[in-house]
Design a protein around this nucleic acid. Structure first.
Length: 814
RNA sequence: GCCGGGGUGGCGGAAUUGGUAGACGCAAGGGACUUAAAAUCCCUUGGAGCUAUGCUCCGUGCGGGUUCGAUUCCCGCCCCCGGCACCA
């Protein structure tokens, strides 16, 4: 008997599928379109198990949709700019481009060996000037529209990577990539005004909430962090000037006993009373040196300045305080120690008064006895005409009242900051801007794009941007006046490239613009996006934002790029995420070599539902391989049987037919919901059944052959190679890949005979078989005859009976 | 602290709208085939008890509740994982 030989058949079918061009997506095809997208990889050198999982899930979906009659777009590319290429350049003395492209070459081979159904004609590589050219163009258009600005700002800087990091790239005060301590540094940077889109990014969530995991939306909502509050003006005593605070608790305005200001507030030193100047300067210097240390005790210094509380005219002192953030609100905070824990701690430390303005049952009036601030809801006290109001109502009543006097207004604040896209690195897309001594900041002319990365660059990893040392690059002419000018030497954050690559796939070779509109309109939106949860905020938020920007620039109608999102879990081994440092990595290449791609795919889809973490198990892989061998032997044994139409006339045929149709139904439903693990389980049960069956009559053989055909179709998206080989072995001339998804007849998915559970007081006592549709009376009669049931009823009174048709009879006794 | 998501056999995991808990796989044990092993095939496998070849009780993190009936719904706890975290 011929043995299952994955190494041989997998390569064979991959070649044939490619020769036939079976994965080509047809622009404007009449069939309904389905855009299946997976997050493209960074070309680190090798595919890892997380990629295999991501792409296996996507491939199963793409192949299923193809069988369901869709015109499927399933592309792949590489997020090819980024730091590791530069590090490799430093360590191995290879050029980042060379390193990147050779990695890509190898990884494409790996992806092909896994049998993924990509349309390779649409390959997109982001470090290609024909790619990044277009984001340079969009950037210039954004600049012209005021959607981009340059600003000096204190930025997160990683001294090890020698680059600026976005807020999102700082985790726990450390660099997301290398883990070094992030420091604060002042630099000129380019910002995209994503905050202008904060409300849209929030509101448009309702367009996608059906298809996105709740937790991703929640994370994004928290990240944007919109809060409603009020801006309130506090007059500076002795000056004709105000300081404005932002508060979400205007209901506590009567409890304000001091005001805090950020140490890095630009007006601080100007305001300070001469008497306190030295002390403040010392404090500010200390603060700037230490940066923001969250674990540090709250500290502050009196400025000598007093402010007037607008609600009651009281004079309250102004303190510079180390916990006040300059980046949020106005950098000035009204302090209500009675009802804010931070202010409470500060007031205790510096002996400032604490006042109770919110009351609830059992809350002492003697604030001296309080051990912490009361921050829960309550009723206003000590608040003049607002006393007795519940605090939620009071918030807006007080603002309304102050608004009339021109001292307050309702306002919103966001946690989201503008997106800093400047990186002091070589291996990124150049920011297409020129600095002219006469004209200032000037965008490069569109017709001069792309601003290419120069190739002759020495990458040492020392001292700032490598581009600044390339004279031919830096020295240029002003696009406006022609004078000698200097190029921007920063490059884009690589999240810029990944914010629109899914649009480029629609017309990857189009050379007149970022994409060809009518093709993009045909394919967009992405019907199903699959990727890791680690991109819940950064990538997915940027991509949503960029799509809206492209819409507003008139490129496309799309508002939300990804209709549905599936976030797959991590691949775990021995309780930890697979990683080199933990030494628990399983190399996909080894698995393919030992068992083949189909086994890898089957195991990954079977071991856990897609969203959950997947525990790698060598025994589990063996099990998957065993199943494929079992499938092989089954089909091989019956390879000469021919299917044909059969009159389902006896019990055996009926039962086989029932198994066929109910399996198709189960697997189809599971595929719709992406429950591949249970779909596979159903196929396994079907295989077990078919092993037992052993067809004897001609009719049985025909129907059995039919069963095998359907089985192969059902498993085809998961294990495409073995099923294709068996399809051909059973005498089929066509490609299994081109067969359509099997149909089932609902009428055949139910049996004539049904098993009814007999319970007494809700406890199972017996199960009895009846013809489908049997009446309660008959079931009850038979149930009474059952000794298992009888012994629980005897001597008791039957109170009532609950009958669920074809399922259950519950007899309630007392 | 706040916001999410979870707790089901030895393990990964199944259980339509409340209706036979533990599908399928792994691991384990027993058997068949074999000179032997591998491979394969068959059987057993949630726990406890007993007057054992069948029956009883317990069992989906814990404690209550609703219901004829709860892994599923409600209330109150405990624990684990993830995200955010001086955001005023």
């Amino acid at each position: 008997m011929e043995k299952y030989n994955p190494a041989e058949i997998e390569v064979k079918w991959q070649k044939r599928w490619e020769e036939k061009g079976l994965f080509k997506a047809l622009d404007f095809d009449k069939k309904p379109k389905f855009y299946q997208l997976e997050m493209f990889p960074y070309p680190s050198g090798r595919i890892h198990m997380g990629h295999v999982r991501n792409y296996t899930i996507g491939d199963a979906i793409a192949r299923y949709k193809k069988a369901k009659g869709y015109n499927v777009l399933h592309p792949m590319g590489f997020d090819a700019f980024g730091l590791p290429a530069e590090n490799a350049a430093i360590n191995n003395n290879t050029h980042p481009a060379k390193w990147t492209y050779s990695n890509i070459e190898y990884m494409i081979k790996e992806l092909k060996r896994l049998g993924f159904s990509y349309d390779w004609d649409r390959l997109v590589i982001t470090c290609d000037p024909d790619y990044y050219k277009w984001e340079q163009k969009v950037f210039i258009e954004m600049l012209e529209r005021g959607m981009v600005y340059r600003a000096k700002s204190t930025v997160n800087y990683c001294p090890s990577c020698k680059t600026v990091l976005a807020n999102e790239q700082v985790e726990d005060g450390k660099c997301w990539r290398c883990g070094s301590e992030v420091i604060q540094k002042e630099m000129d940077e380019w910002f995209l005004k994503i905050t202008d889109y904060a409300d849209q990014l929030l509101d448009d969530m309702k367009l996608i909430e059906e298809g996105w995991p709740e937790r991703v939306l929640v994370q994004q909502r928290n990240w944007i962090g919109k809060s409603k509050g009020a801006f309130v003006k506090f007059k500076i005593k002795g000056r004709d000037e105000c300081l404005e605070v932002f508060t979400t608790r205007p209901d506590t305005l009567f409890g304000v006993t001091f005001v805090s200001i950020a140490p890095d507030h630009p007006k601080l030193l100007e305001l300070v009373d001469d008497k306190y100047k030295d002390e403040i300067e010392k404090f500010v210097k200390e603060f700037k040196k230490g940066g923001r240390d969250f674990s540090k005790e709250k500290e502050g210094v009196f400025t000598g300045v007093y402010l007037i509380n607008p609600v009651n005219g009281e004079e309250v002192p102004l303190y510079a305080a180390n916990f006040v953030l300059m980046e949020y609100g106005t950098g000035v905070v009204m302090a209500v120690p009675g009802h804010d824990q931070r202010d409470f701690e500060f007031a205790k430390k510096y002996n400032l008064p604490i006042r109770k303005v919110i009351h609830t049952d059992g809350l002492s009036d003697d604030v001296g006895k309080w051990s912490e601030a009361y921050t829960e809801p309550g009723v206003l006290v000590n608040s003049a005409q607002f006393d007795g109001l519940d605090n939620e109502t009071a918030k807006w009543e007080i603002v309304k009242w102050l608004e009339k006097k021109g001292l307050a207004r309702i306002g919103y604040q966001y946690r989201l900051r503008d997106w800093n896209v400047s990186r002091q690195r070589y291996w990124g897309a150049p920011i297409p801007v020129v600095y002219c001594p006469h004209c200032g900041i000037v965008p490069e002319k569109i017709e001069n794009l792309p601003v290419r990365l120069p190739e002759n660059v020495e990458i040492t990893g020392e001292g700032g941007s490598p581009l600044s040392k390339v004279d031919e690059f830096v020295n240029t002419k002003c696009p406006i006046c022609g004078a000698d000018a200097k190029r921007e030497t920063d490059t884009f954050d690589t999240f810029v490239e990944s914010s629109w690559y899914f649009l480029r796939y629609c017309s990857p070779k189009y050379d007149k613009d970022i994409f060809e509109r009518k093709r993009a309109e045909y394919w967009m939106d992405v019907d199903q996006y699959v990727g890791g949860i680690e991109h819940a905020v950064m990538h997915l938020l940027y991509a949503r934002y960029f799509t809206k920007v492209l819409r507003d620039l008139g490129y496309i109608n799309s508002t939300e790029p990804f209709k549905r999102l599936l976030t797959q879990g991590m691949v775990i081994k021995d309780g930890a995420k697979m990683s080199k440092s933990k030494g628990n990595v399983v190399d996909p290449d080894d698995i393919i070599e030992q068992y083949g791609a189909d086994t890898a795919r089957l195991f990954i889809l079977f071991a856990a539902p897609p969203e959950k973490d997947l525990e790698w198990s060598d025994e589990g892989v063996e099990g998957a391989f065993r199943f494929l061998n079992r499938l092989w032997r089954l089909v091989y044994k019956y390879r000469d049987l021919k299917s044909g139409s059969v009159e389902v006339k006896n019990e055996r045929l009926k039962d086989l037919n029932y198994q066929i149709h109910s399996t198709i139904k189960k697997v189809s439903n599971d595929f719709e919901a992406y429950h591949f693990n249970t779909a596979i389980a159903a196929c396994m049960e079907f295989v077990n059944y078919l092993y037992d069956f052993e067809p004897k009559t001609e009719d049985e053989k025909k129907l059995y052959a039919k069963a095998l055909e359907e089985l192969l179709k059902l498993l085809s998206p998961i294990a495409p190679h073995i099923t294709e080989e068996l399809w051909s072995l059973t005498g089929h001339e066509s490609f299994l890949l081109e067969e359509s998804w099997p149909e089932y007849d609902e009428a055949f998915t139910v049996k004539d005979i049904t098993t009814i559970a007999i319970t007494v007081n809700g406890k199972l006592r017996d199960t009895l078989e009846f013809p489908r549709g049997v009446q309660e009376g008959e079931v009850f009669e038979k149930a009474l005859e059952s000794p298992k049931v009888k012994r629980h009823i005897e001597g008791k009174e039957i109170v009532k009976k609950i009958f669920v048709k074809d399922k259950l009879l519950n007899i309630v006794v007392k």
